[in-house]
Design a protein around this nucleic acid. Structure first.
Length: 600
RNA sequence: GGCCCCGUAGUUCAAUGGAUAGAAUAGAAGUUUCCUAAACUUUAGAUCUAGGUUCGAUUCCUAGCGGGGCUACCA
C-alpha cells in the first residue's frame, strides 16, 4: 500500500516535472488526526523542482495520483502538506492481504525474510556476590527483548551472558561467611542462595567500615585506612590464593557460587528470560591475560617499572589504561578481552556482538573496542555497546550502602500480589481454578513491570516510581493485556455463535468506519516498527506501537457493535479485524517478553 | 579540570528537520437495560535561556544555566 503510493509519487514527479526520485527515497508520514487523509507527503522541498508554490505542487501531485493509481481516492493540500485519502476498497483489500485466511498466527503481516546473519546479544551478566536488583531487571528485560526483536527481524540470535564469578567482590562474601557465617547454608537459613551470599557481602562491608573507623581513631589518615584495613588485605590475599587455585579457597568459591546460581536461576525463570550460552569470567580471564602478554611482546602494550601492564590510548584522545596489576592478577578489562575472543571463536561469521550494559561503562567499552582493534582483530568493528540509562528512584540513585536498592525478587512478588488484589477487587475471574488464577497474576504482575521498564527509550535514564509502576490503568502492560482479553471474549462468542471467518468475501464489505481504517493502518505498521526497533535496539518502539494499537481497538470496541450487526459480511469483517488485532498485540507483546491472557 | 548524556504539561514519558508539540497520570465534566468500565468521550495544561543555520527547529550548530555519568592496580 505504502509502496504503491510512493511509486505513484515517483511517477508523478517524473511526469509532471521530469524529476527523478526513486520510490525508496520518498518519505510518507501518517496524516495527523485532525486532517482528512491517511498518508501525508510533504511538498516543501519540491518547490524548487516544480517551480510552483508547495500548495500548487501538492495539488498537482494529488491530482495525478487520483487519476493514475487505484489506491488514492482523494486528497487535500494544506500549505505544503499533501494529505492522501485511500479508497475504502483498497483499505479492505490491504486488510484482506494481511489477514490471509483464518490462521492469523501465520499472517503475512508478521513475516520477515531471514537476513542470514548471526547476532549475539549479551545481557544480565551479574556479579555473583549479591542478588539481582531493579537495575538488573531493566538490563534483563531490555536485552531479552532486543534479542527477540532481532530474531523477529530475521537474524539468528544467540543470547549469552558473562558471569562475573571471580574477583575481589566474591572474595569479600566468602571471607565474611568464613568469619561470621557459622556454617550457614541456604537450607539451614531458608534464604535463597543469592540472598544469603549477598548478606555476607553486607557483613563484610560492615566489618570493613568498623575497622576503618578504628584505624582513623588510632590516628591513621582515612585514605590510608581504606587501603590497609586488615579485612580488606585478607580479601585481597584470598583473591591471590584463588588465582593460584588454592584447593580450600577454590572449594569454598565453588560452593558459594553454586548457591548464587541456584538463586539466579529461580529469578530468571520467573522473569521469563534465558540464555543459549553462559561464559564465566573464571574461564575467560586467563585467555585475556595470554592475549595481553602477547600484545606486550608485540609492543602493542607496555610495562611499567612496577611490573603492571598498560595500554597507551593518548593518541586516541584517551588515557593510559591498566590491563594487568603489578602482582599479575587480572582486571575487568583483561577478562573482557578474553570473553570477546571466545565468542568470535564460538560463533564463526558473527556479524554483531551486542553488549547490554549500563551507560556508566561507556568509557570502558570504548577502550575495550579500541584495544581489540589494536590487537589486530578486524571484528572489533562488529562489537556494539547497547548502553542504557540508569534507573533512579524518587529518592534519588539506588545505593546499596544506603539500603535503597530495590530487590528484584521482592519487586516481582509485590507486583504479582498487587495483580491478585486488583483482580479480586474487580471480581472478574469467576470459574478460574486456583492454578489459572495464579498464572494470571504472574502474567499481569510481570507484564506490568516489564512494560513499565521497557516503554521508555532505553538510552535514557528513567525514574522508577513504585506507586506508578503498580498502576494497571493507562499506558501500562495490563491495559494492553486487558485489550487482548476483551478480544478473546469476542472470538469465543463468535465461535459459540458459529460465525466463521475462514472464507470472507471481502468484496462485499459495504462500509468501513474511521476507527476500522485506523486499526488497519495501525496493524499495517507492524513490520516498519519492528524494523525500526531492530535498527535502534529499542523495545520502547514496540511498546509504543502495541499501546497505540490497543488504544485504537478500545475505541473501535466502544463505537462499533459486532454482534448486533445485521449484515453478515460486516460482522465477519469486524471479527476478522478483531482477530488480527489480537494476534498483532500478542506478537508485539511477545517481543517484549510479555504474555497475554485470554481472560482477566 | 577534561570527556559523554539529558533539560518538553503539576508529574512520568512521546514526537525520521514538517501542520495546531502527542500520550498517560493527577484535576474538571460525562458514558453501562448493548460483545469485559482494568474501558471510552470531552475539557484545561508544556518545548530551560540567548544567539545561529533553514521555506520550516523540540530536533542541527554555538554559548550560558540546571541535572546525571565517566575520568580506580573496583567490577
Amino acid at each position: 500500500m505504502e509502496q504503491q503510493i510512493k511509486q505513484g509519487i515517483s511517477e508523478a514527479l517524473k511526469a509532471l516535472y521530469s524529476h527523478e526520485l526513486s520510490a525508496d527515497d520518498i518519505a510518507l508520514q501518517p496524516t495527523r488526526k485532525d486532517f482528512e487523509g491517511t498518508y501525508t507527503f510533504v511538498t516543501f522541498p519540491l518547490a524548487r523542482v516544480s517551480r510552483k508554490n508547495p500548495e500548487e505542487t501538492g495539488n498537482e501531485i494529488g491530482q495525478y495520483l487520483v487519476e493514475n493509481t487505484s489506491v488514492v481516492s482523494g486528497f487535500n493540500t494544506v500549505k505544503g502538506f499533501l494529505n492522501l485519502s485511500i479508497s475504502e476498497g483498497s483499505q479492505v483489500q490491504q486488510f484482506a492481504q494481511m489477514f490471509d485466511g483464518a490462521n492469523v498466527s501465520e499472517s503475512p503481516a508478521f513475516s520477515i525474510p531471514s537476513t542470514g546473519k548471526t547476532v549475539v546479544v549479551e545481557y544480565s551478566s551479574p556479579n555473583t556476590n549479591k542478588p539481582l536488583h531493579l537495575g538488573h531487571l531493566r538490563n534483563n528485560f531490555l536485552g531479552n527483548s532486543v534479542a527477540r526483536i532481532l530474531e523477529a527481524a530475521g537474524n539468528d540470535v544467540k543470547k549469552v551472558q558473562i558471569i562475573n564469578d571471580r574477583g575481589i567482590h566474591i572474595c569479600k562474601s566468602m571471607l565474611a561467611w568464613l568469619k561470621f557465617g557459622e556454617g550457614e547454608t541456604p537450607e539451614t537459613s531458608g534464604l535463597k542462595g543469592d540472598h544469603l551470599v549477598g548478606k555476607y557481602y553486607v557483613e563484610f562491608d560492615k566489618a570493613y567500615k568498623a575497622e576503618i573507623a578504628q584505624l582513623v581513631e588510632d590516628g591513621m589518615e582515612k585514605e590510608q585506612a581504606e587501603k590497609e584495613a586488615p579485612i580488606l588485605l585478607e580479601a585481597q590475599e584470598m583473591l591471590r590464593k584463588w588465582e593460584e587455585k588454592d584447593p580450600e579457597i577454590y572449594a569454598l568459591w565453588e560452593k558459594m557460587n553454586g548457591w548464587v546460581y541456584n538463586g539466579f536461576n529461580a529469578t530468571y525463570e520467573r522473569m521469563g528470560v534465558d540464555f543459549d550460552k553462559l561464559y564465566y569470567e573464571s574461564d575467560t580471564y586467563l585467555i585475556g591475560r595470554d592475549r595481553v602478554l602477547e600484545g606486550l611482546e608485540k609492543g602493542v602494550f607496555f610495562k611499567k617499572e612496577d611490573g603492571s601492564v598498560w595500554v597507551d590510548l593518548t593518541d586516541e584522545g584517551l588515557d593510559e589504561k591498566l590491563l594487568l596489576r603489578k602482582d599479575g592478577t587480572s582486571v575487568y578489562m583483561t577478562q573482557d578481552i578474553g570473553t570477546a575472543l571466545m565468542r568470535f571463536d564460538d560463533f564463526p561469521g558473527l556479524s554483531q556482538l551486542i553488549y547490554t550494559v549500563g551507560n556508566e561503562q561507556e568509557y570502558h567499552f570504548k577502550v575495550l573496542f579500541l584495544i581489540l582493534k589494536k590487537l589486530g582483530y578486524e571484528w572489533a568493528d562488529a562489537c556494539y555497546h547497547l548502553s542504557y540509562g540508569m534507573v533512579d528512584l524518587p529518592t534519588g540513585k539506588m545505593k546499596s550502602r544506603e539500603g535503597t536498592v530495590v530487590d528484584a525478587d521482592d519487586l516481582i512478588q509485590e507486583m504479582v500480589d498487587t495483580a491478585k488484589a486488583r483482580t479480586e477487587e474487580l471480581g472478574k475471574i469467576d470459574g478460574f481454578s486456583a492454578e489459572e488464577a495464579a498464572e494470571l497474576y504472574e502474567k499481569l504482575g510481570l507484564g506490568a513491570v516489564k512494560y513499565y521498564l521497557m516503554k521508555v527509550d532505553p538510552r535514557k535514564r528513567m525514574l522508577f516510581n513504585p506507586e506508578e509502576s503498580i498502576e494497571f490503568q493507562g499506558n501500562t502492560g495490563p491495559f494492553i493485556q486487558y485489550t487482548y482479553a476483551r478480544i478473546s471474549a469476542i472470538l469465543r462468542k463468535a465461535s459459540q455463535l458459529g460465525v466463521s471467518i475462514e472464507n470472507i468475501d471481502f468484496d462485499q464489505v459495504s462500509e468501513v468506519h474511521q476507527t476500522e481504517k485506523d486499526l488497519i493502518f495501525a496493524i499495517g505498521q507492524y513490520k516498519e516498527k519492528l524494523q525500526l526497533a531492530a535498527e535502534t535496539y529499542s523495545p520502547a518502539i514496540i511498546a509504543q506501537f502495541v499501546y497505540d494499537l490497543a488504544k485504537e481497538y478500545n475505541r473501535f470496541y466502544t463505537e462499533i457493535s459486532i454482534f448486533n450487526e445485521d449484515d453478515a459480511v460486516l460482522m465477519q469483517f469486524r471479527i476478522a479485524l478483531s482477530a488480527l488485532t489480537a494476534e498483532t498485540i500478542k506478537v508485539g507483546m511477545r517481543l517484549l517478553g510479555i504474555e497475554v491472557p485470554n481472560r482477566m
